[in-house]
């Protein structure tokens, strides 16, 4: 069950600034540094967003600044994961959810292709076996 099913609403929502903590802007510099490293050495890296003191408003701010790119990958593995390229190529917004749709972890991943998207050689080998089975049935 998702949380929004429960009919809770805040009475007398206080007016004013919607909870920006000021912790989000420095992250953009860190992402830039990581992109630089990716270009120089090919080393991928990631920022773990769920481990940082960011308010929901901070995350929205970051997501809005980074924008949306051309590729959006959806992975169905024990809940949906989305690996979306941002407007800055090589910078991916990765969100893992569980079966209930709750976000379990969230990263900004800096890589040419996120590791999770690539097929593992052992799985490719199993795929090849399946193909050979198909061919033998022809």
């Amino acid at each position: 069950m998702k949380l929004d099913v429960i009919p809770i609403h805040v009475a007398d929502q206080p007016p004013g600034e919607p909870g920006l903590s000021g912790n989000a802007p420095p992250l953009l510099r860190e992402v830039a540094e990581q992109v630089r490293r990716l270009l120089e050495s090919g080393e991928p890296s990631a920022i773990d967003l769920s481990a940082l003191p960011l308010t929901p408003a901070d995350l929205d701010w970051l997501q809005e600044k980074l924008g949306a790119g051309e590729i959006a990958v959806t992975l169905q593995a024990s809940g949906e994961s989305t690996l979306n390229e941002t407007a800055c190529p090589g910078v991916w917004w990765v969100t893992h959810r569980n079966e209930q749709g709750v976000v379990t972890s969230q990263f900004i991943e800096v890589a040419f292709v996120p590791e999770l998207v690539k097929a593992h050689p052992a799985d490719v080998a199993i795929g090849l076996e399946t193909l050979e089975l198909l061919i033998s049935d022809l």
């Binding site: 992975l75 593995a77 024990s78 994961s81 893992h96 972890s105 590791e115 999770l116 052992a122 799985d123």
Partner: peptide, 10 residues
């Protein structure tokens, strides 16, 4: 394997 990888990443 991807489910497992996803879990390990978390």
């Amino acid at each position: 394997r991807r489910t497992f990888l996803k879990y390990c990443a978390t």
